[in-house]
Design a protein around this nucleic acid. Structure first.
Lengths: 235, 235
DNA sequence: GAAATGCAAGAGCAGCGCTCTCATTTGTTG
DNA sequence: CAACAAATGAGAGCGCTGCTCTTGCATTTC
C-alpha cells in the first residue's frame, strides 16, 4: 500500500504513524456515524490537520474505506478463527461450530456499522478491490474447514439435500478451485446454505427487519445455530 | 401522506401529478445510481424545476427515500404474492414455494439498487418509519401463509429442528402476536430459517460475496430452494 | 373583489470530495 | 557542507450536496 516496511528515516516513521492515526480516527468515526457518512474532512479535523493533507496518505475516500474494510475483515476473521481455535477438543465439532457462530454474530452486534460496511449494500459506486479478497475469505474458509473436519470424522449430514443437481455441481466449481478441502457435494451445499443462513439472520437482525417479530435475538440465534449444527451433522 | 385523496381543485390535481413525477424521476435515478447517491437536486434538474420547489412535495431527502422504500416493498410484495397466486393448484405447495422464491430473487436481480435500499444497510442515520411496516410485511407473510398451508395439509417437516428451546418459544412471541397463522414451533423455526437463508443468499450474491466461489447463481439458488422445500416438507 | 393560501424560484449557508499552488521541511547526493 | 530533490502541510478554490428563507406570483376561498 505505502512504503514497503522499515521506517528507516524519521519521515518514514512519521508517515507510518500518521497513516495509523488517520485510520484510527476514521475507524472511530465509522463506528459512530457509519460508512456512508464517513467524512475525510471530519477525520482531518479530528487530527487537527488540513483536509488536503490527508490525501497524501489516502488518495481518496474510497481508499480510506478500503483500508477500513480490510481492517474490519481481518478483525472479524481473527475473532472467528480465534473462537474456533479456543475449543481445545478438536473433535467437538458442535462446540467449535457454536463458538464460531457466536463469535461471528457477537462481533457483528458489537460493531454494527463495521458489519454494514462489510456485508451491507456496497457504498455508492464503490466496488471492493481484489485487495480485500484474502481478508474477506477467512470467514467462509473457517466454516468450510469445520465442515471438512466433519467429513473426515465421518459425521453424517443430519439433513442431506434432496439430490444435488448436475448444474449445481458445476456451479460449485469455483469453490473447488479455490480450496483444497475434501467435502462432498451434498455437504458443501449444506455448508453454503448455513453460511447464507447465518449472514441472512444477522443482516435481518441488524438492519431491523426482525424488529417486531423476534423478541429475543439471542435465543433465536442460538436455536438457528443448533438447527444448522444438526443439519450439518456436527453434533 | 399528502392531501387525503380527491383532487378536487386544479391545484390539487397538479400537486398529485408533480408528486408522482418526482417519485418517478427519483425511482429512475435510484435504479441508476443507487440509494446513497440519490440527489434531490438531480431530480429537480431532471424535471426542470428549482431544487427548492421539490421540498414542497417531500420535506427531505429521507422522506423521498421513504416513499421509494414503500413503493419498492409494495412492488416486491406484489410480485411475490402474484407468483404465489399464479399457481392454480393450491395444494402444490412445492410449486408455490418455488414460484415465490424465484419471484423474490428475480425481482432482486432485476432491481439490485432497490433491493439494496430495502435489505442492504440502512442509509446514514436513516431509520425506516413505521409507515413502511405494512408494505414490508407482505413478503414474510406470504412465506408464513405457505407454511401454514403446509401444516393444514398435514405435511411433515423434512428436517425438524433438534428441539425448540423454551427461550426460543418465548422469542417467537412477537410473530405469534402479529399473525393468526396456525404454525407449530418447529415449523415456525424452519420458516424463519428459510427466510433468512433466502435473503442471506440473495444479499451475498448481489453484494458480491459469492463472486469467485459460485459459477452459476441460478443453479445454486435453485438447489437452495429445493433443499429448503425439502426441509419445510413442501414437496 | 379582497383576503388567505399554495407555490416556484433564487439566493444563500454549511458541508462534502478533491485538486492545485506554494512555502517549508526533510532526505539525499556531489 | 552545500545544493538539489523529494515529501509534506496549509490554504484557496471548484463543483457538488441537503436544506432554509425570502420574494413575487397564481390560485382558491370567502
Amino acid at each position: 500500500m505505502t512504503s514497503s516496511s522499515a521506517p528507516r528515516t524519521a519521515r518514514d516513521h512519521a508517515r507510518l504513524e500518521l497513516t495509523r492515526a488517520i485510520l484510527a480516527s476514521a475507524r472511530k468515526q465509522l463506528a459512530e456515524v457509519g460508512p456512508a457518512a464517513l467524512s475525510v474532512r471530519a477525520v482531518a479535523r479530528d487530527l487537527g490537520m488540513a483536509s488536503s493533507a490527508t490525501y497524501r496518505y489516502f488518495r481518496s475516500r474510497d481508499d480510506l474505506l478500503t483500508a477500513l474494510l480490510i481492517e474490519a475483515y481481518d478483525e472479524l476473521g481473527g475473532a472467528v478463527e480465534h473462537a474456533d481455535r479456543a475449543i481445545a477438543d478438536r473433535g467437538d465439532l458442535g462446540g467449535r461450530w457454536r463458538a464460531v457462530c457466536n463469535a461471528l454474530r457477537g462481533w457483528a452486534v458489537a460493531n454494527p456499522h463495521e458489519y454494514a460496511l462489510l456485508y451491507g449494500s456496497p457504498v455508492p459506486g464503490y466496488a471492493a478491490p481484489e485487495t480485500t479478497v484474502p481478508a474477506a475469505s477467512r470467514i467462509p474458509l473457517t466454516l468450510l474447514a469445520l465442515t471438512a473436519d466433519a467429513q473426515a470424522a465421518d459425521r453424517q449430514l443430519g439433513a442431506p439435500p434432496p439430490g444435488v443437481t448436475p448444474a449445481e455441481v458445476k456451479a460449485l466449481g469455483g469453490i473447488r478451485e479455490l480450496t483444497d478441502f475434501v467435502i462432498g457435494d451434498a455437504r458443501l451445499v449444506r455448508s453454503l446454505m448455513a453460511w447464507a443462513t447465518l449472514f441472512g439472520h444477522i443482516s435481518l437482525e441488524l438492519f431491523g427487519h426482525m424488529h417486531r417479530g423476534i423478541l429475543d435475538y439471542d435465543a433465536h440465534f442460538a436455536q438457528v445455530v443448533n438447527t444448522l449444527a444438526a443439519d450439518l451433522g456436527l453434533d
